[in-house]
Simulated scan of single mutants.
Amino acid sequence: MAFLSYQPLSIDTLLELDAHPECGGLALFVGTVRDEHLGRKVAGLAYTAHEGVASRLIGEIEQRTREKFGVPYCRIQHRLGKLAIGDLAIACVVRAPHRAEAFEACRWAVDAVKHGVPVWKEEFYADGSSAFVEGCCIRDDFDDDPTHHHRHPHQDFKTA
């Protein structure tokens, strides 16, 4: 299964429900395209990526998530190309013996993708303008930046 897709994402292919009967917890995060950002009406957006590097890093994040949290299953997909309001942009599924590990691992994996994978989001606004969204950056030191509002999910995960 590809980590990046120009086609609509399918949650069903990520679930793999019967593959891990020892797991009682399944955490699923799906990020969708919203119609507003910082007070501006969003009409749609486009994701672009350094595809080779992004695919490799998402695979490494899945593996690191399994190791770090002791979970047998972690799958992540990120959409590329033009997306409409409501479209699925990212999906992450983690299966674990218990819900606490599943929730924690899923959050960590999504944060690691957001902070460490070269995927860029351009928003298209209702007024006809567009802009690349300044999001989380690929830096190992951003915890020291007081303007950065996200915790560093991969302090022990290096992207290089």
Rank of each mutant, 00 (worst) to 15 (best):
A109I: 08
V94Y: 07
A89F: 00
S10R: 14
V113I: 14
A54C: 12
L4Y: 05
D145H: 05
F103K: 09
H148P: 02
L9H: 06
V117C: 14
S130N: 15
I85H: 14
V133F: 04
E51N: 07
D156K: 09
A112W: 02
F157T: 03
F124Y: 15
R151V: 06
R95F: 01
F69I: 01
C23D: 12
G31D: 01
K114N: 13
H50M: 05
A84K: 14
H37C: 09
D145M: 03
C106W: 07
R107E: 15
Y47A: 06
R99N: 13
S130I: 02
F29L: 13
A109F: 04
A126D: 15
I11D: 03
L57V: 03
A100W: 11
H20A: 06
D144P: 01
C106T: 12
Y6H: 14
V30L: 09
R66V: 01
D141Y: 01
F69M: 04
C74R: 08
A27R: 08
E36F: 11
R66A: 04
G86A: 07
R64I: 00
L14G: 02
I61M: 07
H154T: 03
I138A: 07
M1D: 11
S55V: 04
P8D: 06
S129E: 15
R79H: 01
Y47G: 10
H154C: 09
G116D: 14
V42W: 09
F124H: 15
V94S: 08
A112K: 10
Y47F: 15
L83H: 06
